[in-house]
């Protein structure tokens, strides 16, 4: 069996389906604002969020009532919009994490045993 080159465009696609959960998870740790969310994703190795931006996704979470927002002045800077999960957001996070784990386990069951050298 030959080794296929790594598809560098795959990670953003994989992330796209769970990015809302990642954002809710970070907010669940601590109430935070847009840039800080981007930075924390980057610290966890999730730097390129699908070639897009988190702002539209934050807008969708807000529209769907999954986050609560308030404007706060932080670190001596200008007032910013801080996000935290709403009760619906926490429920969505819980069910989303369960779905993610089931999907991850199923994919691991298929791909986990495969050991091949990555060819670049």
């Amino acid at each position: 069996m030959h080794c296929m080159p790594v598809d560098e465009a795959r990670q953003p696609q994989l992330l796209r389906g769970v990015l809302d959960l990642c954002l809710l998870a970070i907010m669940e740790e601590e109430e935070t604002y847009g840039y800080e969310l981007t930075r924390r994703l980057r610290e966890r190795g999730l730097s390129m969020v699908g070639g897009g931006s988190i702002y539209p996704l934050l807008g969708r979470l807000e529209r769907n009532g999954l986050v609560e927002t308030r404007r706060l002045a932080g670190r001596g800077g200008p007032p910013r919009k801080y996000y935290s999960p709403s009760a619906d957001g926490r429920r969505a996070l819980a069910s989303g994490v369960a779905e993610w784990r089931a999907t991850r386990d199923a994919v691991d069951g298929l791909l986990g045993p495969i050991e091949m050298e990555v060819q670049r």
């Binding site: 604002y33 847009g34 840039y35 981007t38 702002y55 404007r71 800077g77 200008p78 007032p79 910013r80």
Partner: peptide
């Protein structure tokens, strides 16, 4: 509001 948030975030970046 959107412009203010974006401006602050881009300045911090």
């Amino acid at each position: 509001e959107m412009a203010a948030d974006l401006e602050a975030d881009l300045a911090q970046a």
